[in-house]
C-alpha cells in the first residue's frame, strides 16, 4: 500500500495544486470532537492533518499550543487513546493523510518498536518530532524501516540549517517542513529575514514538496512566496479559530475552503 501522504502529494503535483495542512491538538476539547473535526476537515478538502499528541514539556511550541497540550493532558488524553481514535477514524473509511506531531519522549516511553508497529496498524502516515534532529533519528528510523506501512518521519529544516540541508533531505520522504522563523510555533507572520533565499535553497535541493509553517494565518501571508513553496501549514491560528468558533465544523470548513482556494489562486 502506498503511503497516503505520498499519494496525496503525487495527486496534487499532477493537477498543479498546493497543499494545505492544519494542526490541531488531539483531545482538545475531547477526543470525540477531534474525530468530528477530522471528518469535517476531510470533507472540506484538507490535504494533510497534523494531529498533536500532547506532551508536558512542548519546547518547540509557543503559548497557544502549549496551553492546548496542557488542557488536553488535563482532559486525560494519552498516546494510547489517540491510537484508538486513529483506529476508529480509519474504520469509518477516512482516508485523509494524518501526521502525528509529538515529542520524542512520548515515542521513547511507549517503546520505539511497538510505536512503529502501532502507527502502522492504526493508519498513521507521518511523524513530526521537533526535538529529534537528524543526528538522533537513527534508532527510530530503523524501527520504521523494518515495519511495512510504518509512517514517514517528516524532516524539518530551519532558516539556519544551511549546509545541513543536503544531509537532511537525502532520504527525506513525503514532504519537507520548512520552519519559517526562529523560535517556536505561533509567532506573527514576521518570517525570517532571509526567508526567500532560504526557501529557494531548500526548493532547489528537494525532490519532494516543500511546505512552510510557523506564524501563518491566512493564504495572504504566504502569497509573496507562492512561487517557491508547495504548501502551507497553519497550527496556532487554527487552534485559536477552533476555540473562537467553539469547535464548529462549519466554521472550520469555511476557513479551509477559503484558504485552499486563495492558496491556489494565480
Amino acid at each position: 500500500m502506498m503511503n497516503r501522504i505520498e499519494e496525496k502529494m503525487a495527486a496534487l503535483k499532477q493537477c498543479g495544486k498546493k497543499a494545505f495542512i492544519t494542526y490541531m491538538t488531539a483531545g482538545l476539547p475531547d477526543l470525540e470532537k477531534t474525530k468530528e473535526l477530522v471528518f469535517a476537515q476531510e470533507q472540506a478538502g484538507i490535504d494533510v492533518i497534523e494531529l498533536g499528541i500532547p506532551f508536558s514539556d512542548p519546547v518547540a511550541d509557543g503559548p497557544v499550543i502549549q496551553n492546548a497540550s496542557y488542557e488536553s493532558i488535563q482532559n486525560g488524553t494519552t498516546l494510547v487513546k489517540v491510537f484508538s481514535l486513529m483506529q476508529e477514524i480509519r474504520k469509518s473509511g477516512s482516508n485523509v493523510p494524518i501526521v502525528f506531531m509529538m515529542y520524542y519522549n512520548t515515542v521513547f516511553h511507549y517503546g520505539i518498536k511497538d510505536f512503529a508497529e502501532q502507527c502502522a496498524s492504526c493508519g498513521v502516515d507521518g511523524l513530526i518530532i521537533p526535538d529529534l534532529p537528524y543526528e538522533e533519528q537513527q534508532e527510530l528510523q530503523e524501527a520504521l524501516n523494518e515495519k511495512e506501512g510504518a509512517p514517514i518521519l517528516i524532516q524539518l529544516v530551519s532558516p539556519v540549517s544551511k549546509q545541513r540541508i543536503p544531509m537532511i533531505l537525502e532520504h527525506a520522504r513525503g514532504f519537507v517542513y520548512c520552519v519559517s522563523q526562529m523560535g517556536v510555533t505561533g509567532g506573527s507572520a514576521q518570517f525570517h529575514k532571509n526567508i526567500r533565499e532560504y526557501l529557494s535553497e531548500v526548493k532547489k535541493a528537494a525532490n519532494i514538496p516543500v511546505m512552510m509553517g510557523f506564524g501563518i494565518r491566512t493564504a495572504d501571508d504566504v502569497k509573496p512566496l507562492s512561487d517557491i513553496i508547495d504548501g502551507a501549514v497553519v497550527g496556532s491560528h487554527f487552534i485559536n479559530l477552533l476555540r473562537k468558533s467553539n469547535y464548529d465544523s462549519g466554521e472550520v470548513q469555511k476557513y479551509i475552503k477559503e484558504f485552499k482556494m486563495q492558496l491556489n489562486m494565480e
Partner: peptide, 26 residues
C-alpha cells in the same frame, strides 16, 4: 540500550534532542 560510540553520548545517555534550529548553534 544501544551503546553509541559518539562523543555526544555517555554510553547511551546524553545526545542532542533539540530542534533543528539549534543544531548549528550547538
Amino acid at each position: 540500550m544501544q551503546e553509541k560510540k559518539d562523543n555526544r553520548y555517555y554510553g547511551g545517555f546524553g545526545g542532542q534532542y533539540v530542534s533543528e534550529s539549534l543544531m548549528n548553534v550547538l
